[in-house]
Design a protein around this nucleic acid. Structure first.
Length: 259
DNA sequence: ATGACAATCAGAGATTGA
């Protein structure tokens, strides 16, 4: 089972690039972030025609997450528990019914800039809720994963120029500590389970020729529960997508599971 | 370098992102 995560930065803007990548990469499941669309505006037919079922959790203009799946989905839920007043669409869950059922959580973690400030407070509060949800899901001791745009640069090796990110919400010590606290519940970060060293990124800013300079950061991650980590066969970043026509500023990351 | 770059909503330019 191949599961991918991809921050597409607007479904309308990626109306050609996304199907093109799908046809090549042939993922069974895709967790999308930043669809920037309401549910009714999502172009489901493009994906249904390719054999995917479509589950969205959208909002107007910003944020929004979705799941595409060629395998049956069960028990779809929307929204991260822990704050009824939170209106931002950043979390969706479903169980993928392959040979081994896998619970998948697609997430778009708040950016948090500028920091300090209310947006940074929201980021840390959201991560606290993520920690709580992760604990609940781990208690089942079953295969599950949480993947998406974490807006976290875990270590200096995950940025081409770590020094410019030191005071940024994506890399400052409080952000990294909150991320590690979740990881330390017992998750395996899939990419680092298989690949070591610097030079691996999932985001390149549109500005200042970042792509041409390979001035990237790695902020899109797969966290696997222990039972899911046992199924891990591979994890890769589809870097080449970034060089195409009208690309997102993120590229897809995927895992292959023995499930 | 009060910058750049892209997307959204709107129908110009502010807001958001990372």
């Amino acid at each position: 089972m191949k599961i991918a995560t991809f921050n597409i930065n607007g479904i309308k803007a990626r109306i050609n690039a996304l199907p093109e990548w799908l046809d090549e990469a042939q993922p069974d499941v895709v967790l999308l972030q930043e669809i920037k669309s309401v549910d009714e505006g999502f172009p489901r037919e493009i994906f249904e025609d390719r054999g995917y079922s479509v589950e969205t959790h959208g909002q107007k203009s910003f944020n929004g997450v979705a799941i595409l799946s060629k395998l049956p989905l069960e028990d779809v839920t929307r929204g991260l528990p822990g704050d009824e007043s939170d209106e931002q669409a950043r979390w969706i869950e479903a169980t993928v019914m392959g040979d081994t059922p896998v619970r998948v959580c697609g997430l778009y973690l708040p950016n948090g800039n500028p920091c300090p400030g209310p947006k940074y407070d929201y980021k840390l509060a959201w991560m606290e809720r993520l920690h709580a949800r992760a604990q609940d899901l781990l208690a089942a001791e079953e295969p599950f994963l949480m993947a998406g745009d974490y807006n976290i640069i875990p270590q200096d090796e995950d940025a081409k120029r770590p020094e410019v990110w030191q005071q940024d919400a994506l890399a400052r010590p409080e952000s990294r500590a909150a991320y590690r606290r979740i990881l330390n519940l017992g998750f395996t970060e899939a990419f680092r389970a298989r690949t070591h060293g610097p030079g691996h990124y999932s985001f390149w800013d549109y500005q200042a020729g970042a792509w041409n300079k390979d001035d990237g950061i790695r902020i899109d991650h797969f966290l696997l529960s222990p039972q899911c980590a046992d199924l891990l066969r591979d994890c890769q970043i589809d870097k080449d997508i970034r060089a195409r026509e009208k690309p997102s500023d993120h590229v897809p990351v995927w895992v292959e599971l023995d499930a």
